[in-house]
């Protein structure tokens, strides 16, 4: 996937970088669909901004329901990302570095939640972690823990949906990383754990960061699995997307405001991620 090409700084000849030559004419068969594609992606968002009730915005933004949903969303998405990192990075390492039988099947299984409609994920979670679920029954009888309708349930649903994004991103980074450093560390006597923490992790840190941000954004926008598995109750399980959905039924303006907040958060994250790429060492 990743090869060394002439754009790579490692092999680029020293001296001033020649300005990249721009093609004079962009062929219309490419330009037209490209423009249409851009408009298709940007117009709905522009519509959201255009229809926003700007005059009443400050008042609406400070409504306690909005702040409650926003706080819950940010907290849940952040903790879910932490869970994804703690479990997903080792899983990605296993997939990238250890050759074990059935690795391809494991990788396929890891990506299933990506293609699964989130609602189906929610039902699946209910059947396992619900009060009558395979693990849920045991959790309830042994520890008195029930996950549905709790904030923990929201985190579980979000982590389930977001983890594959992180695993795939980190695995890709690991596969692309130069293994010679790890080999060098090993020849110098470092164990596999030391190599992992002192060489591998710093090497793929930007990949992990990119995966974490993407997973976080996915968790923040999670709707289907959350409403199915964790239900909807303000302050406990009603995250921003759920609040948007329910607000839409009665108050379009409120739904637009909530959407606008989510859009702002997403764009901010994207911008931050972009800076990360550009300033990466």
């Amino acid at each position: 996937m990743v090869g060394i090409d002439e754009q790579d700084p490692a092999v680029r000849p020293k001296g001033p970088v020649p300005p990249r030559r721009r093609t004079q004419r962009v062929p219309a068969p490419l330009l037209l669909p490209a423009g249409a594609g851009l408009a298709f992606l940007v117009l709905p968002l522009a519509g959201l901004v255009y229809r926003a009730p700007w005059t009443s915005l400050p008042r609406r933004l400070t409504e306690p329901e909005v702040l409650t949903a926003l706080r819950l969303s940010l907290q849940a998405a952040t903790i879910a990302t932490g869970v994804c990192l703690a479990l997903g990075v080792p899983l990605a390492w296993l997939l990238a570095r250890v050759d074990f039988p059935g690795r391809r099947i494991v990788r396929a299984l890891v990506t299933v939640p990506l293609v699964l409609p989130p609602v189906v994920g929610g039902i699946a979670l209910l059947l396992v972690f619900g009060r009558r679920g395979i693990i849920g029954t045991w959790l309830d009888s042994t520890f008195g823990i029930t996950l549905p309708f709790t904030t923990t349930g929201v985190i579980v649903a979000e982590a389930f949906v977001a983890m594959p994004f992180l695993v795939i991103a980190v695995e890709g980074a690991l596969r692309g990383a130069d293994t010679r450093y790890e080999e060098a560390a090993a020849t110098l006597g470092a164990g596999r754990w030391t190599t992992f923490t002192h060489v591998t992790l710093p090497l793929v840190a930007p990949g992990i960061a990119a995966g974490a941000v993407l997973g976080w954004a996915r968790a923040l926008g999670e709707f289907g699995a959350t409403i199915t598995f964790a239900g909807n109750f303000p302050g406990r399980t009603q995250t921003m997307p759920l609040a948007v959905y329910l607000a839409l039924e009665t108050d379009l303006q409120a739904a637009i405001v909530l959407s606008l907040i989510l859009l702002t958060v997403s764009v901010t994250i994207l911008a931050a991620l972009r800076d990360k790429w550009l300033t990466a060492p």
């Binding site: 990743v2 130069d178 090497l203 990119a210």
Partner: peptide
């Protein structure tokens, strides 16, 4: 060298 990592991740 982290470039590889980022690009592969992308």
């Amino acid at each position: 060298m982290t470039r590889y990592g980022i690009r592969a991740a992308l």
